[in-house]
Protein backbone atom coordinates (compact mmCIF):
# COMPACT_ATOMS: atom_id res chain seq x y z
CA UNK A 1 0.00 0.00 0.00
CA UNK A 2 1.21 3.47 -0.77
CA UNK A 3 1.30 4.78 2.68
CA UNK A 4 3.77 6.82 4.59
CA UNK A 5 3.22 5.30 7.97
CA UNK A 6 6.39 4.12 9.63
CA UNK A 7 7.03 0.56 8.64
CA UNK A 8 7.16 -0.83 12.09
CA UNK A 9 5.04 1.31 14.32
CA UNK A 10 1.45 1.82 13.40
CA UNK A 11 -0.60 4.93 13.78
CA UNK A 12 -2.01 3.75 17.09
CA UNK A 13 1.45 3.19 18.46
CA UNK A 14 2.51 6.56 17.17
CA UNK A 15 -0.36 8.05 19.06
CA UNK A 16 0.84 6.30 22.17
CA UNK A 17 4.34 7.58 21.61
CA UNK A 18 2.97 11.10 21.43
CA UNK A 19 0.86 10.88 24.55
CA UNK A 20 0.92 13.79 26.95
CA UNK A 21 1.58 16.53 24.43
CA UNK A 22 2.93 19.79 25.79
CA UNK A 23 0.12 22.06 26.90
CA UNK A 24 1.96 25.34 27.20
CA UNK A 25 -0.14 28.30 26.30
CA UNK A 26 -3.46 26.52 26.45
CA UNK A 27 -3.90 26.43 30.18
CA UNK A 28 -7.20 28.26 29.95
CA UNK A 29 -5.99 31.54 31.46
CA UNK A 30 -6.66 34.91 29.90
CA UNK A 31 -3.02 35.07 28.90
CA UNK A 32 -3.87 32.74 26.08
CA UNK A 33 -6.12 35.20 24.34
CA UNK A 34 -5.43 38.25 22.27
CA UNK A 35 -5.71 41.49 24.16
CA UNK A 36 -9.25 42.78 24.03
CA UNK A 37 -10.84 39.39 23.38
CA UNK A 38 -13.53 38.46 25.85
CA UNK A 39 -12.99 35.10 27.46
CA UNK A 40 -16.30 33.37 27.94
CA UNK A 41 -15.80 30.13 29.85
CA UNK A 42 -19.26 28.84 28.93
CA UNK A 43 -18.64 29.34 25.26
CA UNK A 44 -15.28 27.68 25.61
CA UNK A 45 -16.78 24.68 27.33
CA UNK A 46 -19.37 24.36 24.61
CA UNK A 47 -16.85 24.50 21.81
CA UNK A 48 -14.23 22.40 23.48
CA UNK A 49 -10.99 22.97 21.66
CA UNK A 50 -10.28 19.43 20.59
CA UNK A 51 -8.83 19.48 17.10
CA UNK A 52 -8.42 15.74 17.38
CA UNK A 53 -11.11 13.72 19.09
CA UNK A 54 -8.44 11.34 20.32
CA UNK A 55 -7.22 12.39 23.70
CA UNK A 56 -7.27 8.98 25.34
CA UNK A 57 -4.09 7.19 24.39
CA UNK A 58 -3.65 3.75 25.79
CA UNK A 59 -0.12 2.93 26.71
CA UNK A 60 -0.65 -0.69 27.68
CA UNK A 61 0.20 -2.81 30.65
CA UNK A 62 3.54 -4.01 31.82
CA UNK A 63 4.09 -7.70 31.21
CA UNK A 64 6.41 -9.45 33.58
CA UNK A 65 9.54 -10.92 31.98
CA UNK A 66 8.96 -9.06 28.73
CA UNK A 67 10.58 -7.96 26.66
CA UNK A 68 13.44 -10.45 26.78
CA UNK A 69 16.74 -8.59 26.71
CA UNK A 70 19.36 -11.32 27.08
CA UNK A 71 20.42 -10.16 30.50
CA UNK A 72 22.51 -12.90 32.08
CA UNK A 73 22.85 -14.88 28.85
CA UNK A 74 26.10 -16.75 28.34
CA UNK A 75 27.99 -18.51 25.56
CA UNK A 76 26.40 -18.68 22.13
CA UNK A 77 23.16 -17.19 23.41
CA UNK A 78 25.01 -14.10 24.60
CA UNK A 79 26.60 -13.79 21.16
CA UNK A 80 23.19 -14.07 19.50
CA UNK A 81 21.81 -11.37 21.79
CA UNK A 82 24.72 -9.13 20.83
CA UNK A 83 23.88 -9.70 17.18
CA UNK A 84 20.17 -9.01 17.74
CA UNK A 85 20.99 -5.71 19.44
CA UNK A 86 22.64 -4.76 16.15
CA UNK A 87 19.39 -5.13 14.18
CA UNK A 88 17.49 -1.86 14.00
CA UNK A 89 13.88 -1.09 13.29
CA UNK A 90 13.64 -0.29 9.56
CA UNK A 91 12.43 3.26 10.16
CA UNK A 92 13.71 4.33 13.54
CA UNK A 93 17.22 4.19 14.97
CA UNK A 94 16.36 1.79 17.76
CA UNK A 95 17.42 -1.81 18.20
CA UNK A 96 14.65 -4.37 17.83
CA UNK A 97 15.61 -5.71 21.27
CA UNK A 98 15.21 -2.28 22.86
CA UNK A 99 11.95 -1.79 20.99
CA UNK A 100 10.76 -4.89 22.82
CA UNK A 101 10.10 -7.11 19.82
CA UNK A 102 12.08 -10.12 21.06
CA UNK A 103 10.12 -12.31 23.45
CA UNK A 104 12.54 -15.21 23.81
CA UNK A 105 15.74 -16.83 22.61
CA UNK A 106 17.02 -20.35 23.16
CA UNK A 107 20.09 -21.93 21.54
CA UNK A 108 20.42 -25.70 21.88
CA UNK A 109 23.00 -27.77 20.03
CA UNK A 110 23.51 -25.03 17.47
CA UNK A 111 19.79 -24.58 16.82
CA UNK A 112 18.49 -21.12 17.70
CA UNK A 113 14.81 -20.51 18.39
CA UNK A 114 13.72 -16.89 18.48
CA UNK A 115 10.24 -15.76 19.52
CA UNK A 116 9.41 -12.29 18.34
CA UNK A 117 6.40 -10.05 17.80
CA UNK A 118 5.67 -6.98 15.70
CA UNK A 119 4.28 -3.70 16.92
CA UNK A 120 1.52 -3.81 14.37
CA UNK A 121 -0.40 -6.65 12.71
CA UNK A 122 -0.25 -4.89 9.35
CA UNK A 123 3.49 -4.21 9.54
CA UNK A 124 4.66 -3.99 5.93
CA UNK A 125 8.27 -4.66 6.95
CA UNK A 126 7.37 -8.06 8.34
CA UNK A 127 9.12 -10.24 5.76
CA UNK A 128 12.12 -7.94 5.45
CA UNK A 129 12.66 -7.76 9.19
CA UNK A 130 12.23 -11.49 9.67
CA UNK A 131 14.72 -12.24 6.88
CA UNK A 132 17.22 -9.85 8.41
CA UNK A 133 16.87 -11.42 11.85
CA UNK A 134 17.20 -14.96 10.50
CA UNK A 135 20.34 -14.05 8.60
CA UNK A 136 21.83 -12.15 11.52
CA UNK A 137 21.29 -15.00 13.95
CA UNK A 138 22.53 -17.62 11.45
CA UNK A 139 25.78 -15.67 11.04
CA UNK A 140 26.67 -16.03 14.72
CA UNK A 141 29.48 -18.53 15.40
CA UNK A 142 27.98 -21.62 16.96
CA UNK A 143 24.57 -21.24 15.34
CA UNK A 144 23.78 -23.74 12.61
CA UNK A 145 20.07 -23.30 12.15
CA UNK A 146 17.44 -20.76 13.09
CA UNK A 147 13.75 -21.04 13.82
CA UNK A 148 12.05 -17.66 13.98
CA UNK A 149 8.58 -17.78 15.45
CA UNK A 150 6.22 -14.86 15.18
CA UNK A 151 3.99 -14.60 18.24
CA UNK A 152 1.18 -12.16 18.97
CA UNK A 153 0.42 -12.76 22.61
CA UNK A 154 0.95 -10.85 24.75
CA UNK A 155 0.49 -8.05 22.27
CA UNK A 156 3.26 -5.50 22.01
CA UNK A 157 2.68 -2.21 23.80
CA UNK A 158 4.79 0.85 24.40
CA UNK A 159 5.55 -0.58 27.85
CA UNK A 160 7.76 -3.19 26.16
CA UNK A 161 10.30 -0.55 25.14
CA UNK A 162 13.42 -0.66 27.33
CA UNK A 163 14.95 2.40 29.01
CA UNK A 164 17.65 2.42 26.34
CA UNK A 165 14.95 2.18 23.69
CA UNK A 166 13.07 5.11 25.19
CA UNK A 167 16.22 7.13 25.24
CA UNK A 168 16.92 6.29 21.58
CA UNK A 169 13.37 7.18 20.56
CA UNK A 170 13.56 10.49 22.44
CA UNK A 171 16.82 11.23 20.68
CA UNK A 172 14.96 10.54 17.42
CA UNK A 173 12.32 13.09 18.41
CA UNK A 174 9.49 11.00 19.82
CA UNK A 175 8.16 11.82 23.25
CA UNK A 176 8.07 8.57 25.19
Amino acid sequence: MNRNTPSDVDVDADAALEADPPTEGVDGTDDDFEAGAQYDPDLDAENEATPCSYTDYRSGETVEDLPATGEGATGVEAAVWDALYGVEDPEMPVSIVDLGLIYGLVVEDGHATVDMTLTYSGCPARDMLQDEIRETVADVDGVESVDLRLVWSPGWTIEMVTEQGRSDLREFGLSV
Binding site: M1, R3, T5, D10, V11, Y120, S121, G122, C123, P124, W152
Partner: peptide, 13 residues
Protein backbone atom coordinates in the same frame (compact mmCIF):
# COMPACT_ATOMS: atom_id res chain seq x y z
CA UNK B 1 -6.72 3.74 4.60
CA UNK B 2 -5.28 2.85 7.98
CA UNK B 3 -8.31 0.69 8.71
CA UNK B 4 -7.72 -1.07 5.40
CA UNK B 5 -4.12 -1.75 6.35
CA UNK B 6 -5.24 -3.05 9.75
CA UNK B 7 -7.75 -5.39 8.12
CA UNK B 8 -5.11 -6.70 5.75
CA UNK B 9 -2.86 -7.34 8.73
CA UNK B 10 -5.66 -9.19 10.51
CA UNK B 11 -6.49 -11.20 7.41
CA UNK B 12 -2.86 -12.22 7.30
CA UNK B 13 -2.89 -13.33 10.92
Amino acid sequence: SNNAQDELGHARL
